[in-house]
Design a protein around this nucleic acid. Structure first.
Lengths: 144, 144
DNA sequence: GCTTGACCTCAAGTTAGCTTGAAGTCGTAC
DNA sequence: GTACGACTTCAAGCTAACTTGAGGTCAAGC
């Protein structure tokens, strides 16, 4: 397969070269050999980068992403951890849906004040319900 | 209405006091008066904090969130900007869905290598398609 | 053979979003 | 009235994820 140098990867993946070097430095991607000084990338790096971008928009840190996609092309992690992450994503989507609906509603609603609009209040209540688990208060019990 | 001091807001909202002070400092929330030195918060701050948390999980910065929810309880921003943000959220949800499906699939798939699994390859192609607009390459045209 | 431009390294700088720590001020319970 | 714990300020520190800049290398085209 024909290798690409960093400029081409950058252009195709929409990621600046500095970021690609950084990702390589932390072991998130790798370049296969050098042509003189220049890194040569296998085209596979593109799907890997797509997966990384996906993980980023999902709010995973680069470290978490490394853990998930491992060194080679495979996805690691025990099955139940993967399922747990998938469930997190599901919950996150639910939150996004609420926010999306709220914004759409506000864009269309004619009520003088949203605080008086029943639809808005319902959405806000939904938003409040999503507010579970996150910061653990110092005084809270130590039970998982 | 009875005011709450910072500890109670912290407990109820699941947000550390230091964060609440920080949010106040940058004008994202406000405390109404002081009882001696102590900030007193209107209970409304809780829905505001829920909205902020929602915005955060959606990937908005605190500055963007300020712009959206404004100083008082209302949501600001011209309608079409709100709709545009809502559409962003929609797109983001699509990405999350792909990632979720990918993780779920990987958790269940029995294929020896994912790279050979057609389902996986289909998901990866979908992931690649989401890879549009983000970093604008220096050599790219200046057209919006 | 020389220029050019795309690459290289390495250290230092940047931004967002908080947290931590030291030192001080209160109001409530005893 | 004093001790306690929950608050206060302010400056400094921290982490993630990059970017920037100075100074250097090299291959391909002329």
């Amino acid at each position: 397969m024909k290798m690409m140098d960093i400029g081409e990867v950058s252009k195709r993946a929409g990621v600046p070269p500095s970021t690609l070097r950084y990702y390589e430095e932390i072991g998130l991607i790798r370049s296969d050999k050098r042509h003189g000084l220049r890194r040569q990338f296998d085209p596979d790096v593109l799907s890997r980068l797509a997966l990384i971008a996906l993980g980023r928009t999902a709010g995973f840190t680069l470290v978490e992403i490394s853990a998930i996609i491992g060194r080679d092309g495979e996805l690691y992690l025990p099955r139940d951890e993967l399922r747990a992450k998938a469930d997190d994503l599901q919950r996150q989507m639910a939150k996004l849906r609420i926010l999306r609906d709220t914004l759409r509603h506000v864009a269309d609603c004619k009520a003088p004040s949203h605080l008086e609009c029943p639809t808005f209040r319902k959405l806000m209540k939904a938003a409040l319900r999503t507010e579970k688990r996150g910061y653990r208060h110092p005084n809270a019990s130590n039970r998982p």
